[in-house]
């Protein structure tokens, strides 16, 4: 690795001050959370920062709590810890599954959801699950804080909406109410230690008559970044998830998908798998609305 300075500020104020100083001095700064992508990229010479700012000692980035009606997951909380958090496991089983698909047990001991999001891989497993669940990114800026929906946070392959001097602090989402369920599934040739060819996340909420009142469907690995397929969700609202409604949602998702052909699959294959996964994920989320979601 090319040489760099390492610092680990222990408070939000210290982090903000150090970021401002680094920006003023023109230091190429890189924030470190779990490092499972970053260190590999640095070893391979893809990134050569002059300053590494380790944010794990900033308490806000290690938060894992329910604050009123909001679930807060600090940006540097490791995957293994996030997926084991009772509310995540109980009320966000789709997100928990997406987290469980990240790398190996060793990688999950370090990799954070915040890092997974900032790395902005088109195939990142947690990103569609975060988008479907309506997560917002809480961002530390030079002046204060700002929030951005996760679907607006990822902007391209490996690109995110953070401006120079900004840091992702936490992810937060409303705790789901009754008759609500989420799901995430991906297609990979191997069952473990692989990268999504297509990933689909969904969050559905039913009204008390069992009709879908809201539906968010997010697609991964079929465009430069994960995104909210609004038309696919809209095709489900007002239905009970009948086969025709699932077909309509799948068709809308396939229409919205803009995949490329690469070694993992052709564009045509990805588009078709996207349709299949939308139907499976919606069916699974629907089932959870009436079972696990019936709190």
């Amino acid at each position: 690795m090319q040489g760099f300075a390492y610092e680990a500020p222990s408070s939000l104020e210290a982090l903000r001050a150090r970021l401002a100083a680094a920006q003023g001095a023109g230091e190429l700064t890189q924030v470190l959370a779990g490092g499972t992508d970053l260190l590999v990229q640095m070893k391979q010479g893809q990134r050569a920062p002059g300053l590494i700012l380790d944010i794990k000692r900033v308490g806000e980035t290690q938060a894992l709590a329910v604050d009123g009606d909001t679930l807060v997951i600090g940006a540097s909380v490791p995957a293994a810890k996030a997926k084991a958090f009772p509310l995540v496991a109980e009320a966000f089983p789709g997100l928990a599954h997406a987290i469980d698909l990240i790398g190996s047990s060793q990688i999950q001991g370090r990799a954070s959801l915040g890092g997974n999001l900032c790395n902005a891989s088109p195939a990142g497993d947690t990103i569609p699950a975060l988008i479907a669940n309506g997560f917002e990114a809480q961002i530390l800026t030079a002046e204060g804080l700002r929030t951005l929906p996760v679907e607006a946070f990822v902007t391209g392959v490996g690109k995110n909406a953070l401006a120079a001097g900004e840091v992702l602090l936490a992810l937060q989402a409303p705790v789901p109410g009754p008759r609500s369920g989420d799901a995430y599934q991906r297609f990979t040739p191997r069952t473990e230690m692989d990268i999504a060819v297509v990933g689909v996340g969904a969050r559905l909420t039913l009204d008390d008559a069992g009709v879908i009142a809201s539906a968010r469907i997010a697609l991964g690995a079929v465009a430069p970044h994960a995104f909210l397929a609004e038309a696919a969700g809209a095709a489900l609202v007002g239905t009970r998830g009948e086969p025709e409604a699932l077909e309509a949602a799948a068709a809308a998702a396939m229409e919205a998908a803009k995949p490329i052909s690469d070694k993992r699959g052709s564009a045509d294959f990805r588009r078709r798998i996207c349709g299949v996964l939308v139907k499976r994920v919606v069916a699974q989320a629907l089932e959870r609305c009436t079972t696990e979601g019936a709190k």
């Binding site: 499972t36 260190l39 380790d54 293994a80 190996s104 047990s105 060793q106 990688i107 001991g109 370090r110």
Partner: peptide, 24 residues
């Protein structure tokens, strides 16, 4: 971080020591 031959626990979390900076 692909092979696991350098596995250790850091504060009780399982991790690959090749992907941890010693300073951390």
């Amino acid at each position: 971080g692909d092979c696991g031959a350098c596995s250790v626990e850091l504060d009780g979390a399982l991790a690959c020591s090749c992907l941890i900076l010693a300073a951390e």
